[in-house]
Design a protein around this nucleic acid. Sequence first.
DNA 1: CGATTTCTTGACTTCGGTCAAACCTGGTGG
DNA 2: CCACCAGGTTTGACCGAAGTCAAGAAATCG
Lengths: 247, 247
Amino acid sequence: MTLQIPLEHSNCSDCPIRHRAVCAHCDGDELAELEEIKYYRTFEAGQTIIWSGDQMNFVGSVVSGIASLTQTMEDGRTQMVGLLLPSDFVGRPGRESAAYDVLATTDVVMCCFRKKPFEELMARTPHIAHRLLQMTLDELDAAREWMLVLGRKTAREKIASLLSIIARRDASISKDRRAEPIVFDLPLTREAMADYLGLTLETVSRQMSALKKDGVILLEGKRHVTIPDMGRLMEEAGDDTDGGFLV
Amino acid sequence: MTLQIPLEHSNCSDCPIRHRAVCAHCDGDELAELEEIKYYRTFEAGQTIIWSGDQMNFVGSVVSGIASLTQTMEDGRTQMVGLLLPSDFVGRPGRESAAYDVLATTDVVMCCFRKKPFEELMARTPHIAHRLLQMTLDELDAAREWMLVLGRKTAREKIASLLSIIARRDASISKDRRAEPIVFDLPLTREAMADYLGLTLETVSRQMSALKKDGVILLEGKRHVTIPDMGRLMEEAGDDTDGGFLV
DNA sequence: CGATTTCTTGACTTCGGTCAAACCTGGTGG
DNA sequence: CCACCAGGTTTGACCGAAGTCAAGAAATCG
């Protein structure tokens, strides 16, 4: 996959995540200050962006691609605890070292800010602090949603939940929302899905096959997914089929 | 259980959570403004403080007691997604309706602020917004920690994890930290523990018995717990026994 | 003291995990 | 062009941890 985004934007106003990232509320002057401390970095799929425990020199936003926050136990059991999509923020102001591994799931472009200057800027720029609070509250909601999935749903429901989340996100990006069938490419391997859902990759594979056999999803190859009936998928996920207006 | 805290504090400076709650960084003038929009409410153990979906007229802090955030599926499966201890914040500025049920696990006293005035005050008081961001980031970390527990730990490890969290909190409150053995009363029923851990109450009971039989914990009655060896408990939880310095 | 809630324990079932083998699919080099 | 390989994936056989159903025991409370 080749990257369509030139590595150095002359200015933030062209940025694809301008209106959704931590800089969303910033005015021209504030953007100018951010421009001065920003730089871009790219990572290839599979690369580790940050190791848990490492010193953090920067915070930043995912511009394109998908990254994941992952926790690992000594014996190797791993659990993904966050899925970072374009515009999502990485790093915690005020913290010295990283609390989780950050992995590039696909090729990733990040817009990085040197940490110290960013913290100083944030301290005197309510627009940034306010946006970061909003985003953090949204992430907390997402994490809590996920706790229900991890704690109480069956394997089939877990898979359906993940697919419906990805489908919903893709639908919100494409111009023709509500258009069925929904079609997308899975950005995750079966193993990554398993790590997200607290399952083994074998169980993920089996449940994908079962959902396919039952006509809930269509598969071409391993990654290309078609969802003929979104309502059906959400029923399978155990979610309230009507009131699903989250984000 | 009788409440030791008088319902109306003449001023915030006497408040037991003054230095930990959302008002922690406030100066005298800011506190005076908060005093004007605050009021106290009490709830009995088992009462519902807020129903998911209800209109929120207030936000606030837990002053004493324990509350829980809980999600429920249509078929009755429930998952606790947050445990609210004294000084924890309830409600989300900018949101109209509650996203989760809030239940009083024990008798609870809350310090409430009328929502509208609080939001206005927050908008012009960086001290409050900054503290709320800090607290939200901490909650997010706790939620992610819990995702590892829910997704990857065995029933025995889950119980040990919950006990070590409660023990650690109690140890941080008591003056003589690091003092072993650690002794405390479980503030949760077996069912609440199960809802927290994504287990059934039978499994919770069995694993509690097993940990008791193996000498990891001592039980007097059902609720009074003694932990003779905190390191041992943390091993059982599958946590790194040394670097465990989280909050 | 009953009565009710909470907890424990047992017997059995089941869902998802483990181990192992085979299957694609796309890339590499002969 | 094809053989071969490697990573990702699928599928099968079997197992075990946790769930379900049910009966009692213990604590709590009017």
